[in-house]
Design a protein around this nucleic acid. Structure first.
Length: 567
RNA sequence: CGGGGCGUAGCUCAGUCUGGUUAGAGUACUUGGUUUGGGACCAAGGGGCCGGAGGUUCGAGUCCUCUCGCCCCGACCA
């Protein structure tokens, strides 16, 4: 491609709406342009990157024997009513009616459609397993789209679905998909972690997220500094404590603690490590029908993890509760404890099991109990409720956990029969009995990956594309196109590179050196060959975008050098 | 959906508080000239329903009401 004939509208200034590096540079460098909130046009460069990622996905899916399909973007609402997700998705499902007044939705994901193309067609265990996928536009009418391509309403996603006749076979496929996804991200040149995730309301037995590591990531991850273990902080586990603070000496007693409400005050008041205090967090648990206040007890040194807390009571949501509501129930904020009270449903964190010499609220203003042995309580519900913190022990290897930020670019799930059962997607097993498909689902955010590459690879000058994602690997830049020998050399190099199958753009624009260099850096081609005044000495330079290095090479050896650098 | 902010040239913004000829700058664009290794310089141009509707006023980019759009924080995000 000749730059003079390309459409690459770069700008010196960033759009005022852009905040994230990926949004700023992808806009400034002319890869994408915003249309409306959460809607983007992909310009020629952006489209090239998108297709490159798509191609790599297709290649790796082919290796796994997954079959590509293309399902209708507009889907009949009946399918969604059948699965019950039309209510669940709520306003995120964009609905509309056709001329005959039939209700349709724009597909936000395609479980229903995919099940519908398989059911009644795949009818025997002999036809299983089956793995079908598509790379397709999705639409979710997000309440608040943001961060450019990272959370757009319309986006491109690879969504795959596998169908099995046994959980063992699902496990095999799940592992194969995990390996394939890993290869895809490696080929894209991204630094990532595969982490355990919360399965959420959708259930299922296994769920892993693929996280591209970047400071701007929306998800917080707890990862081990030694082994491979990592998890979304919503689902992260930790090893039992090995370092236990010295226990306070106290017999059981009711102790006056005037206006001592916070864990910090309590810890200071008694000169006791917060480990030996009991923190009470009361929230209103909202269920499909009705709601109730629930109290979660955790050690004072820990933090409540809301997703875990929500799962522990099977609630759809947890919302804050006011002090007034607490008083109504008969609880005194700041002095809530688990002993001698049946005013509220409560759940205790696993780490409080068998806890002794604890300090907890006495359910009376200005009083706490000290020297509490929690074993005195009967029929207590325990669950994992706490947030894994930096420095906690890894549950697998004893390494230290640390926090990092990640961009979720993939999510793989063992669905089981969550969809196949209600949608009556069944096959006949060896015994001639009807069974629902055992399913897995594998998603990957293709347009989000475009942004993720830049979030992880940019500097103050612009984009730094990895070799596999670059719109063109090499930019041949002619410093001054009026120099005929320079142009002639560049033209020849351009042709040669093309014939070698290297994607190349020739910057033949009638612009000055500095202008073109800035563009090259902003757009982020991995290599820019600078054809300029050094050519008189038989030399050209190669600017390596990732390092900023300027390599002077013999004009006759550019090809070899490029081949060497790209490896 | 709650809270906050912003809509003026393709883009980034001034002007709005305190109403008053023909609405500005930078950049981008067109033409000519000079330049040519880090976003050049000179000159001449084109480009605006001041987001939209209604109102107040002799007069509205500016004040009032309504509305639409976009961004940020939060809620939300199978």
């Amino acid at each position: 491609m000749r730059f003079s004939r390309a459409y690459i509208p770069t700008t010196k200034e960033s759009p005022k709406d852009a905040q994230l590096p990926s949004h700023i540079y992808l806009s400034r460098a002319g890869f994408v342009a915003q249309v409306a909130s959460g809607l983007y046009n992909f310009l020629p460069l952006g489209k090239r990157v998108l297709r490159k990622i798509e191609n790599i996905i297709n290649e790796e899916m082919a290796v796994c024997g997954a079959l590509e399909v293309d399902l209708s973007f507009v889907t009949p609402a009946e399918l969604w009513q059948e699965s019950g997700r039309i209510e669940k998705f709520g306003k995120e499902l964009l609905r509309f009616r056709d001329r005959k007044d039939n209700l349709f939705v724009l597909g936000p994901t395609h479980e229903e459609m995919m099940v519908s193309i398989v059911r009644n067609r795949v009818t025997s265990y002999k036809q299983l397993p089956l793995n079908v996928y598509q790379v397709k536009t999705k639409f979710r009418d997000e309440a608040r789209p943001r961060f450019g391509l990272m959370r757009a309403r319309e986006f491109v996603m690879k969504d795959g679905y596998s169908f099995h006749s046994s959980t063992e076979d699902l496990d095999r496929e799940f592992d194969a998909m995990e390996a394939a996804y890993k290869r895809i991200l490696e080929r894209l040149g991204l630094e990532f972690r595969i982490v355990e995730a919360d399965s959420g309301a959708i259930g299922g037995t296994g769920s892993k997220e693929l996280m591209v590591l970047a400071d701007s990531g929306e998800d917080t991850l707890a990862v081990c500094d030694t082994c491979e273990y990592g998890a979304n902080v919503e689902a992260a586990r930790r090893a039992p404590r090995t370092v236990i603070p010295e226990a306070p000496q106290a017999d059981f007693a009711r102790f006056k603690t005037p206006n001592i409400k916070s864990i910090e005050d309590l810890s200071n008041f008694f000169h006791v490590d917060p480990y030996y205090t009991l923190k009470a967090v009361v929230m209103r648990a909202v269920y499909t029908e009705g709601s109730e206040p629930v109290c979660f007890f955790i050690r004072g040194c820990d933090e409540l993890q809301e997703v875990k807390a929500r799962n522990s009571v099977g609630a759809n949501d947890l919302v804050d509760i006011s002090e007034a509501e607490l008083m109504e129930i008969g609880l005194v904020p700041g002095f809530i404890g688990p002993l001698d009270q049946n005013k509220i449903r409560f759940v205790m964190d696993n780490d409080t099991r068998d806890a002794t010499t604890m300090i907890c609220g006495a359910n009376e203003a200005d009083y706490h109990f000290v020297g509490v042995d929690l074993n005195v309580m009967k029929d207590v519900v325990f669950a994992d409720l706490v947030t894994v913190q930096a420095g906690d022990g890894c549950p697998h290897c004893g390494g230290k956990m640390e926090h990092t930020k990640g961009i979720e670019v993939g999510h793989i799930f063992k669905l089981g029969t969550v969809y196949s059962a209600p949608l009556k997607a069944e096959y006949l097993d060896e015994n001639g009995r009807s069974q629902p498909f055992i399913m897995g689902t594998y998603g990957m955010g293709v347009s989000r990956l475009v942004a993720a590459v830049i979030e992880q690879h940019h500097d103050e000058k612009g984009c730094i594309w990895t070799h596999a994602t670059a719109p063109y690997l090499v930019n041949v830049m002619v410093s001054n196109i009026k120099e005929e020998t320079h142009m002639a050399y560049a033209e020849e190099l351009y042709t040669t590179l093309q014939s070698r199958g290297i994607e190349v753009i020739l910057d033949d624009r009638k612009e000055r050196f500095g202008f073109k260099m800035s563009d090259a850096e902003l757009i982020g081609f991995p290599f820019t060959v600078i054809v300029g005044k050094e050519l008189e000495n038989g030399l050209v330079q190669i600017m390596v975008r990732s390092s900023g290095e300027m390599i002077t090479v013999d004009a006759a050896n550019v090809l070899d050098k490029i081949e060497e650098l790209r490896r």
